[in-house]
Design a protein around this nucleic acid. Structure first.
Lengths: 92, 92
DNA sequence: GGGATAATTAGAAAATTATCTAAATATCAA
DNA sequence: TTGATATTTAGATAATTTTCTAATTATCCC
């Protein structure tokens, strides 16, 4: 996890849409996949990229795996973007 | 220009560093390039990706091209990220 | 146990991207 | 005009990424 993986994860439209789908609460891989026309394997891949980037967490319950947004990593990204504004300063 | 190009542009570490370098004001392509070990042609390519993404603007003055951050596009990105928080709502 | 369902992993093909070298364009200055 | 400097564009190659199909793992239920 780190900026690199997170920014890269956000660079794909399918992954951004997944995050949007998770906006209002946890969903299973299957529910998420039903929003797309690609195969479940491909969706699973995107979910793993998002998980490795720290943008979502997974929670296995029986046959299902529930995915949920992890907002704290979004804070870091937002913070980085905000840091671009500072101006002349030399803050990290 | 649109989210896709902008997020993708932010997904590369060299490009994020360029934005960071431009934090405290406009710089020429050469000044920017001197921070990296890659060729000027490669830096030029990254600058054009950033420009097409709306993240920087260019201003040619004589022999030099000055690049400068465009903060308004960063606002759009930050806004999109913020929209992920809303919760149960169905707002765009 | 055996079959059905949910999801992932493995491996490969196709598309995209980052980088390089070489060549081109534009400007400045003698 | 000629040469030097700043930067981009063109074309090629290597690396990465997206997506697929097929196979695997895990769980549930009869």
């Amino acid at each position: 996890m780190g900026f690199q993986e997170t920014f890269k994860a956000l660079g794909d439209p399918t992954r951004r849409e997944i995050l949007h789908i998770l906006r209002d609460g946890a969903k299973t891989a299957g529910e998420i996949g039903s929003h797309f026309s690609m195969t479940g394997a491909t969706v699973s891949h995107h979910l793993s990229v998002l998980r490795e980037a720290g943008l979502i967490t997974d929670d296995k319950r029986g046959k299902y795996i529930y995915y949920e947004l992890n907002l704290s990593v979004l804070d870091e990204i937002t913070g980085w973007l905000a840091g671009l504004r500072g101006g002349k300063g030399d803050e990290k």
